[in-house]
Design a binder for these strands. Structure first.
Length: 872
DNA sequence: TTGTCCCGCCACTAT
DNA sequence: ATAGTGGCGGGACAA
């Protein structure tokens, strides 16, 4: 079907029927009607098939059905059409495409590498958050004239590097190289921890002396193994902030290509000469644990996959093909030509554990989500929304950041002890000069040994990327907490990164006290270079990783029993019903908002909404299984929070007690944090900074009609509470400090964007909006450009139809509590636009988030409560 | 020959 | 059942 569509699409494209809107084309019925004609045409156009193969003569074993025939025709014609189109577009002088010069188009023209090139050409190295970075697999496939299958190959590799991330089926988000430094840093770290370097050495050794004798020791046997049994080594290294998006849709365990890709890259990053031969790589990747690996075929297959991966990596200019000459002749190999100066990952042991467990975590999250949203009885009565996952993840990440925040913001980064930075790495051509638009030609000097070795001194690492690359390397900014602030006047919103002034005990709640140290504008960075000042400004100072004792941490972590499932929450009688209790969540904050941000946001929401319209969860969508209502939680709640909790709890209990509830209404309460819930990730001493980039939920814009985006300006304010998942020990950021530290509008820190990860009210709002639980910008009349700058409108917010069951009488007003004192306090239903959502839903969300958090670390209700304030 | 790797079948998984 | 994914390896080029 799809291929047919593509085929037809191709046909029309080449016929000159180029539609402005690919989507339209994809779905337009027009293409269907001429089908017969098209096929005929195709048939007649069929030329020498480049890769005919078996399909040629009546399918080997395939029944000769009209369908198969059609399929055959299509497949046969497809390349031809592709070629023709190619000539049309790429070969202007190639006059008469009439009889195609498809003579030699062959393989090379169809190579994955080339395809990848074309694909990459469609997107900037560093995405403009203001633009639509959505990638529709279908569209891409259609526009590139290839079958989806090929796109998957590319996407998988790109995804492994977090250059893209998957949003949903058929949909990816483009991140470009923004995350690359972090990704590579992490991969290198993981690779080191897996001692791939040594393994490679061993393999090489043995290869010399012997034939087949890989089995480089039980490398990563010790680690998780993800419960995958045989696939012990199947772990996917994720990058905070990038991975979770796919969590909801990625369930397939065997994403070998992705994993392989990462491992492959790891090999480069840990091998001293940055050269890896396919053979060695295949050996290692096969993961042939001490078992017989005589699988010649397996090896072969692996190599084939490696070629696929390598082609993509080559397109990315990360590697280049070289040859290593050995006794037995020259063997294919690849050399790393990518960046060498990416920041080393600060976190040591703990991080790795995290990486390794990512899969596991994710799995558990998925499971949890599944369980959560699939009530025993009805399977799909409930819907889970990615944004929830995002939210949970964000919170979790925030916590991690906080927990791992370095003790001293001023300390200069010390070349990481041992592992990461110590080894001298060949200094390739510094990729620093790479430009978004003009990727530098790979200077390939294959066998030539790298002349100089460079120690990754802090300075070196901080080499700014002229490209406007995200300069905020995780390590550099580790101690910083991004805070997205509404922009006051002209410059657009900017984020402020705050240093944690101290790092609390890993196991205790952070007490972020911070200073605004850096701010960035959210200007689109296209073409402009990020201010180096930004980078230099703080980077050297931030990298200090207190990591009081990484090893210790690790030990602690590992010590934690893999533990059994969390104690089952007590069940409550599902029959009890509760009258709908409504939470009111202010949709806007009183601070003025940046038009731009609003714009983006709105567009984003709009875009989202498109998809949501059809599957917007019903009011009951988030209703929870009782089992998940009570999750063990942290007991370390700040008193303030406890108060809130108590308030809420009592309130809820009251409600529960006095009313009939729908299933699963247990009093929400914080449960003492149990040790086993302390996921290792929580302990990561990394002040991992996720570049708030492209992925900002708000950094979306309908590229196709900027106008409409501009038309209405959402009035939402998104201020993140210090990225803290904790009740903001509010002293950290005051309006005063803000203004003081706020860069001038024309600040050179033009950065790019950032994604923000703080579990802020904003996010909650956003999430809720996405969930359809609260009205979005589009549905809130009050959110008009005019009101954008004005605080609140005492107007009442029209409730979404599906939420119409509120009773003002039994409402709880929850309002975001931001570290940044809100100037305009919401005073109640009449004070500002409020949206009512059912208590149940709120609880559902909270519970779900809790559930999600389990996979990552302790996250409890108390973590969320800070973002709300009972208004009563 | 060996190296590359296109192509698409088909198993799986999500809906 | 259908559609989206992606493992996998046959076998066609390319060197």
């Amino acid at each position: 079907m799809t291929s047919l569509n593509i085929l037809l699409l191709n046909y029309f494209v080449q016929q000159g029927n180029v539609f402005a809107e690919p989507q339209a084309l994809t779905t337009t019925p027009r293409k269907v009607s001429p089908q017969g004609t098209v096929l005929t045409e195709i048939q007649s156009n069929m030329g020498p098939l480049t890769t005919p193969t078996k399909g040629k003569e009546t399918g080997p074993s395939e029944p000769w059905t009209p369908t198969s025939n059609l399929k055959m025709l299509i497949s046969a014609a497809s390349p031809e059409i592709r070629n023709r189109e190619k000539e049309l577009c790429m070969d202007p002088e190639g006059g008469d495409l009439g009889e195609e010069g498809e003579k030699q188009i062959s393989r090379k023209e169809k190579s994955l590498g080339l395809l990848c090139h074309k694909f990459l050409a469609r997107y900037p190295d560093y995405p403009n958050p203001a633009l639509n970075n959505d990638i529709s697999l279908d569209d891409v496939a259609a526009e590139l004239n290839v079958e989806r299958r090929r796109i998957y190959d590319i996407m998988n590799v790109l995804e492994s590097l977090h250059i893209v991330s998957r949003l949903a089926k058929n949909r990816y988000t483009w991140h470009g190289r923004a995350n690359l430094p972090q990704t590579l840093a992490k991969l290198r770290q993981v690779g080191e921890e897996h001692r791939y370097g040594q393994q490679m050495q061993q393999i090489r050794q043995r290869s010399l002396e012997r034939e087949f004798d890989s089995d480089g020791d039980e490398k990563e046997n010790e680690e998780v193994g993800g419960g995958g049994g045989s696939q012990k080594e199947m772990f996917f290294v994720e990058l905070p902030g990038v991975e979770f998006k796919a969590a909801s849709v990625n369930s397939r365990k065997d994403k070998s290509l992705r994993v392989m890709s990462q491992k492959f890259v790891m090999l480069f990053l840990v091998s001293t000469p940055r050269v890896v031969s396919l053979e060695v790589a295949a050996r290692i990747l096969i993961g042939e644990d001490q078992v017989a690996d005589q699988d010649k075929s397996k090896f072969k297959t692996k190599v084939r996959r490696l070629y696929d991966i390598a082609n993509v990596l080559r397109s990315l200019k990360l590697i280049e093909k070289v040859h290593v000459t050995e006794e037995r002749g020259r063997k294919p190999a690849f050399e790393w030509t990518g960046p060498e100066d990416f920041p080393s990952v600060k976190e040591t042991a703990a991080t790795t554990a995290t990486a390794k467990r990512t899969l596991e975590s994710r799995t558990s999250i998925d499971n949890c989500a599944k369980n959560l949203f699939s009530s025993p009885g009805s399977k799909h009565s409930f819907t889970r929304h990615p944004s929830l996952i995002k939210l949970a993840k964000s919170i979790q990440e925030d916590r991690r950041k906080i927990n791992s925040a370095p003790t001293s913001p001023v300390k200069s980064k010390t070349p990481k002890p041992a592992v990461t930075v110590t080894e001298a790495v060949p200094n390739h051509e510094q990729k620093a000069a790479k430009k978004p638009g003009a990727p530098q030609p790979p200077v390939l000097t294959p066998t030539e040994p790298r002349a100089s070795t460079v120690h990754l001194t802090p300075q070196a690492q901080f080499t700014p990327q002229p490209t406007g690359a995200m300069s905020f390397h995780p390590t550099q900014c580790s101690p910083l907490i991004p805070v997205l602030l509404p922009q006051l006047q002209g410059g657009g919103p900017y984020a402020i990164y705050m240093h944690h002034s101290f790092r609390p005990h890993p196991l205790t709640r952070p007490q972020p006290t911070s200073l605004a140290v850096r701010s960035m504008t959210f200007e689109d960075k296209t073409g402009r270079s990020p201010s180096d000042a930004t980078v230099h400004g703080h980077s050297p100072a931030t990298n200090n990783l207190p990591t009081s004792s990484p090893s210790l941490l690790k030990r602690v972590c590992s010590k934690r029993p893999s533990e059994e499932s969390p104690s089952k929450a007590k069940r409550i009688d599902p029959s009890t019903r509760v009258r709908p209790v409504l939470y009111t969540i202010p949709l806007r904050s009183s601070v003025d908002t940046s038009p731009k941000l609003c714009e983006i946001l709105q567009a984003r929401l709009k875009a989202r909404r498109g998809g949501l319209l059809s599957n917007r969860p019903s009011p009951r969508a988030l209703h929870l299984d009782p089992e998940f209502v009570n999750t063990p939680g942290s007991s370390v709640a700040a008193t303030a929070n406890q108060t809130l909790e108590q308030n809420l709890e009592t309130f809820l209990e009251e409600k529960v007690a006095t009313s009939d509830s729908e299933a699963g209404l247990t009093p929400v309460r914080a449960v003492p944090l149990t040790p086993h819930h302390l996921h290792t990730e929580t302990l990561i001493p990394t002040g991992y900074l996720i570049p708030i980039s492209q992925q900002s939920p708000f950094s979306y814009k309908d590229i196709h009609n900027p106008e409409s985006s501009k038309a209405s300006t959402p009035t939402y304010i998104y201020h993140t509470p210090t990225a803290g998942s904790r009740p903001p020990p509010i002293q950290e950021l005051t309006p005063t400090s803000l203004s003081l530290h706020r860069p001038p509008p024309a600040s050179p820190f033009s950065a790019q964007v950032h994604r923000f990860h703080s579990p802020s009210p904003a996010i909650l709002n956003f999430t809720l909006q996405n969930l359809g639980l609260i009205p979005g910008p589009g549905s809130v009349p009050a959110c008009s450009p005019g009101t954008a700058q004005t605080p609140e409108h005492p107007s009442s917010v029209p409730l979404p139809p599906h939420l119409g069951l509120h009773q003002r009488g039994s409402m709880v007003f929850v309002k975001p509590m931001s570290p940044v004192p809100v100037q305009h306090q919401m005073t109640g239903p009449d004070g500002q636009p409020l949206t009512l959502i059912r208590l149940q839903q709120v609880r559902g969300i909270l519970s779900y988030i809790q559930c999600l958090a389990k996979g990552f670390g302790p996250l409890e209700l108390c973590d969320l409560l800070p973002y709300f304030r009972l208004q009563t």
